[in-house]
Design a protein around this nucleic acid. Structure first.
Length: 559
RNA sequence: UGCCCGAUGGUGUAAUGGUAGCACAAGCGCCUCUGGAGCGUUCAGUCUAGGUUCGAGUCCUAGUCGGGCAACCA
């Protein structure tokens, strides 16, 4: 595997673990967890968390659990469970035998809730959801105590059991922790910890009709599994006092929750809800549409796990809300692809080139290097004949001074083949559009350079018209036209910023070697960019290409 | 208006009381059978005001600005 060497910074989480190891806080153990809720597909933001959770375990000789936080059956599905496991594996991480489900702990959680009630630290509350909200108060005003707050322990115990037995309808009762209705932290104002939900669960079926709330469940999951460092995103910061309170009341093993800033990427949205809307609204084809920031979308687009890992290490871990430039992601991608992708020639906007002094029925092959960055990648042979296709952009009838490509009277190198001089153009009499470029080649320059040592400034790519195959090529661009679609100043909906040109499809002329390319294979099309064979829409011998990312282009930039 | 968190070039980060560094982006140059890659180089930063200290990006106080929190979601 190609692993890039990113200088690892001693971010605050590494420092914390160093310190815990030094003081023997957890007897030298490092146990982390990645705890997704299976209610959607993983995206690049999750990749940051995955790299951190699994990365810290790997780095410190610990283990990282994959745990599905499946405490809300109305939103969760096995389809998501399967995709999450596939994506984590694809990113290169291994949870070994440590695969867990919060739902496996429902019995224990129930027992812990009973224990809390017995300690008079929780009670069954009768308030309706509306009353509940009203009694909670607002940040600047304390809440009011529920009349149920002083319900005798025995009565709460009885009601809780009957809740479990299905005697009540959804919403009739809720179990609440008994903390402090005047707390400045809303989450400490007697939060709900168990609710009635008569919904079948994707794993436990109809066994339960009560389900624990996140705040109650998560700390218990961590505690049960002996997690040492429970890493989560910043929005859970205000939940930490509750996490600590529950474990303290129950007097059980207590991991440390630590928060870091989630990833935001320019020209991208990261909310699962909005990504779902894009799929359901038909703005993209699916969760794995190559324009999606989902792991499955990036995979289909041609991203490599190594590039994503390098990116996650490069952005770092802090507590600062930030918006990372998508150009950094693309840099990490190109950096990896440059070293690992074999080169091929393809012409996406063809213009016919005729070599007038090359015999009509003759053909030959030239040898081309597969990857100049990797000598082990070897070489291949490319057929050549009198008629070729070149890129329309590589010819100008009336070129500006700094244009180094083909023009009337100009000599260029046909990559790996020979030197060629344009002598004439053929135009469509109607439109005036150039339809053919004619010229002569220098037979002594076979292979690419002239024996007299003369230099040419431009080298262009080509394919043999007689040998080339046609292939659909999908050119992807960013999905949104603005840096931060989720936050427009005038409250506009993010959908208003969808890029109408995020996908254009064309038919390319590809060198013969590409016709047999396997689904998922990645190539650099010389002078154009990185492309991969779509894993869904390609058929044997009939590849469909997705543009992963274009090459950097200093010519088009200074135009 | 309450509580919590944060603030270093355009962007993402490092410096843990002792020379503000790296990467991306942008610009320039060299090199090149990819206007790719590589190499070199330039531009550019500690939110404000006080304080502690021989010395503050770092510690303290106040302010400013930004983010988060009022699902029986996670």
């Amino acid at each position: 595997m190609n692993e890039q060497t990113i200088p690892e910074s001693k971010h605050f989480i590494r420092q914390m673990i160093d310190e815990d190891l030094r003081t023997g806080r957890y007897d030298g153990r490092v146990v982390t967890r990645f705890p997704p809720e299976p209610n959607g597909y993983l995206h690049i933001g999750h990749a940051k968390a995955i790299c951190l959770d699994f990365g810290m375990a790997l780095e410190y000789g610990g283990v990282c659990h994959l745990r599905f936080d499946d405490t809300n059956p109305s939103k969760e599905e096995v389809e998501y469970v399967d995709s999450i496991m596939e994506d984590v594996r694809w990113l290169g991480f291994d949870w070994g035998e440590h695969l867990y489900y919060a739902s496996d702990y429902f019995q224990q959680m129930y027992a812990y809730a009973v224990a809390l009630i017995k300690k008079d630290k929780a009670y069954v509350c009768t308030l309706t959801p509306e009353e509940f909200k009203d009694y909670r108060g607002v940040p600047t005003r304390p809440g009011k105590e529920s009349p149920s707050r002083h319900r005798p322990v025995e009565e709460s115990l009885d009601l809780f059991e009957r809740m479990k037995n299905g005697e009540f309808e959804d919403g009739a009762y809720v179990v609440r922790a008994k903390i402090d209705m005047a707390s400045p932290n809303l989450h400490m104002r007697d939060p709900a910890i168990y609710r009635i939900k008569k919904t079948a669960h994707h794993r436990t079926g109809d066994t339960w009709c009560i389900y624990p709330m996140y705040d109650f469940a998560h700390c218990l999951e961590d505690s049960i599994e002996g997690i040492t460092h429970s890493l989560c995103t910043l929005e859970f910061e205000v939940h930490r006092p509750l996490y600590d309170w529950i474990l303290d009341q129950l007097e059980i093993y207590h991991p440390q929750q630590t928060e870091f800033a989630r990833l935001n990427l320019s020209y991208t949205i990261m909310s699962k809800r909005k990504l779902l809307e894009l799929v359901e609204g038909g703005h993209v084809a699916s969760w794995d549409d190559p324009r999606m920031p989902t792991i499955s979308g990036l995979r289909r687009r041609g991203y490599t796990p190594a590039a994503i890992r390098a990116f996650c290490e490069t952005v770092g871990i802090t507590k600062v809300n930030s918006l990372t430039d998508v150009a950094l992601l693309e840099h990490c991608l190109r950096d990896d692809l440059n070293k690992t992708s074999e080169r091929r020639m393809a012409v996406l906007n063809p213009l016919k080139l005729v070599i007038d002094n090359y015999p009509e029925n003759e053909e030959e092959e030239f040898e081309a290097v597969n990857n100049p960055e990797d000598p082990d990648a070897g070489t291949r042979r490319i057929p050549f004949c009198r008629e070729l296709y070149i890129e329309r952009d590589d010819f100008m009838e009336d070129p500006p001074k700094k244009f180094f490509r083909l023009a009337p009277g100009r000599e260029v190198r046909l990559r790996y083949a020979c030197l060629f001089t344009c002598t004439e153009v053929v135009k469509d009499p109607q439109t005036g559009e150039v339809t053919e470029v004619h010229g002569v080649y220098d037979p002594d320059s076979r292979g690419g350079s002239a024996p007299d040592g003369r230099k040419v400034r431009g080298t262009i790519h080509w394919v043999s018209a007689r040998h080339a195959a046609d292939a659909p090529v999908r050119l992807y661009d960013r999905l949104f036209t603005v840096e931060n679609p989720a936050e427009s100043k005038d409250g506009a909906d993010y959908r208003e910023f969808l890029n109408p040109d995020s996908l254009t499809v064309t038919t390319g002329k590809i060198e013969p070697a590409l016709a047999a390319a396997a689904p998922g294979a990645r190539f650099q099309f010389e002078r154009l960019g990185y492309y991969c064979v779509d894993s869904r829409d390609s058929a044997p011998g009939r590849p469909v290409f997705n543009r992963t990312v274009p090459l950097r282009d200093s010519w088009s930039k200074n135009k």
